[in-house]
Structures are given as C-alpha cells and as structure tokens.
Design a protein around this nucleic acid. Structure first.
Length: 301
DNA sequence: AACAGCAGCAACCGCGGCACG
DNA sequence: ACGTGCCGCGGTTGCTGCTGT
C-alpha cells in the first residue's frame, strides 16, 4: 500500500538547476502554460520530476516574483500573521504578492525567529519567553492537581468528535485548553478576514490578538535593519545573454555585479527592474526578454 | 593562508487533501 | 463509496559562501 512516488526517480536529475534547465522550463511554460506538472518535464525535455519543475517555477522562475530583502513592514506583517496562523506559510505568503511560502519560511527560520528570541519573545507562542516558561510550569502544577481523566475531559476544539482522534495529551491543563480554543477562534477569524478583505487584516489584527498586540506597530523593529549582503546563492555558473549576440558566463562569486551592469548596458535598461541586484544572482533573467520569445524571434541558446 | 563553524538559501521528501473516474 | 493520481504544503536536508580564529 502507500502512495506511489510522484515519478520514476531512476535516471532523473536532482540537485541545483542549471541555466539551461531553467531556460527550457521557462520556455516551455511561457509557450504552453501549465496543465499537468507531471507531463511538463517530458514535454520540456527535462530530466526532472514534475514536482521539481513545479517547485523551481514557483519559487524561482515565476515572472511575478519579488526578489530582494524583506522590508521591516513585511517582517512585521509576517510576525503578525504567524502569531495568528502559525506555520501556515502558504497562507502567510498569500498576503505578500511576489513572495513565496518557501522564501517566507526560510526568512522566518533564519532571521525572524532569531530576532524574536533575542527580544525575549518565544517565536512559537509570540509570548514573552519568561511568561511562556511560567505557563509551562504552572500547567504542569495544575495538571498534577487534577486527575488524568479530568484533564482529558475537555475537547480541544469543536468538531473533534467527527471521528478524528482528539489531539489531546495528558499534560494539558484547563488553562491551556482555553488558550488553545481561543487561538483557534482567532485563526478562524483571521482566515475569514483574509478571505473577505486582506487589506483590513492589519487593522483588525490588534483587536483580535490581545496578548500579541505588543508586536503591533510599537516600533519593535524600528531599529533593526538587515544588512544582508547580496547573496550569490547558486553554485552553478551564471550566464547572461542579450537577445542578439552576446553571452557571458562566470562563476557565481565572480563579478556578478559587473555582469549585471554589462547586461544592463546592452539591453533594455528597465529589464532588470523586477530583479533587484541585491537579490539572488539567479534573478538576472529579464522577463522583458521573453517578449521576444512570444514574438517568435528569440530563443535561449 | 588555511581551516572550522555558522548562516542562508534552494531543493528534496513525505504526507494530506482534493478531484475524478 | 471507494480507489487512484496529482497538486500543494510544511518540515528537513545539504550545499555554498561568509566570518572568525
């Protein structure tokens, strides 16, 4: 039993994508659109599984991707949404046009989490760490005062009787359960808001998140500025070609800036606006160039 | 200059949910 | 109602560049 693998893994390529593979994938999707990811690699002439192609497209090649560092406003919003939605990265990402769930997840795990900890805030609960520890201690104390049966007598959420096994463990206090129920309510309310009008989310958030409101608009991150150096994130070689005669190749760490500048000077000076230099060096594909592709007089390599 | 440890990111993996026959 | 296949999500891994010693 069990699911079949999404594809035959034998003979398929894994690991970092090459420029050539990127070109093939983009070329294919721009010309044919996306119908079935499973068939994309075959039709595009790629030795990848459909899943890998999908991931590459969504996280990297999509034309509407916004690259570069997260702004303070974005970070604040991520924190707010995370306090309500938890690790539902795709939901969180849906509030950031041009950002991917993977990108937000990585940013959370590598930076925001760390920063919250430095500020004495538990990234999981969004509560001050001391208070979280107190809660943990007190819940254990409370729990010791109750029988196991009493602890188990409160369903975690409405609807848990629908055949699902309640996700309740013995070390849950009455207080914890009410907190959990309250949290779920907030999640539901925020999701409603997201559906109805995400622009109103922030306005409503303060009202919804009592304890968490300390994170709201208090200038918590006003003094923080990520001075993230430009990342040369991909190990493979980087090629920049204009649509006519020129093509450049260099190792990732080598003179990326100058390559970009060369590219800019050759082609449309607006062509890299969507791909900030501070972002990944792989962001150098110009989507303006794909206009040529659609017009039929341009092709990569 | 060489090495080790760390940080950041892209990519992979496995599972759940959903659509469809 | 059930089985199958695909997509999407979230957690995790591994690679690469950076920084400190």
């Amino acid at each position: 039993m069990g699911r079949q693998p999404c594809c035959e893994k034998v003979g398929l390529k894994r690991g970092p994508w090459t420029i050539d593979e990127d070109h093939k994938l983009m070329n294919f999707i721009l010309n044919n659109g996306i119908h079935c990811w499973r068939t994309v690699p075959k039709l595009a002439g790629l030795l990848r599984c459909g899943k890998s192609c999908r991931l590459r497209w969504i996280n990297y090649l999509r034309p509407d991707l916004k690259r570069g560092d997260f702004t303070e406003e974005e970070e604040d919003q991520i924190i707010q949404l995370h306090s309500s939605l938890g690790n539902r990265w795709s939901k969180i990402a849906s509030n950031f046009p041009g950002r991917t769930d993977n990108e937000i997840k990585n940013h959370w795990n590598t930076r925001i989490k760390k920063r919250l900890k430095q500020l004495g805030i538990d990234p999981l609960t969004h509560m001050p760490i001391e208070k979280t520890e107190e809660n943990n201690r007190s819940s254990i104390v409370h729990n010791n005062e109750k029988t196991a049966a009493e602890s188990l007598s409160f369903p975690l959420e409405e609807g848990s009787s629908d055949g699902k096994i309640p996700t309740l463990v013995c070390e849950v206090s009455r207080e914890d359960i009410s907190l959990e129920v309250e949290h779920r309510k907030r999640v539901d309310e925020v999701e409603l808001l997201l559906d109805e009008d995400s622009n109103d989310l922030l306005n409503n958030y303060a009202a919804l998140c009592g304890n968490n409101s300390l994170l709201l608009g208090e200038g918590l991150f006003q003094d923080t500025k990520y001075t993230n150096p430009s990342m040369t994130s991909q190990s493979c070689s980087v090629s920049v070609g204009d649509s006519i005669n020129n093509s450049y190749t260099a190792s990732a760490s080598e003179s990326i800036q100058s390559i970009l500048e060369d590219s800019l000077s050759i082609g449309n000076s607006n062509s890299l606006q969507q791909w900030p230099v501070e972002g990944s060096v792989d962001s150098i594909f110009s989507w303006d160039d794909f206009d040529y592709l659609e017009q039929g007089d341009f092709s990569f390599f």
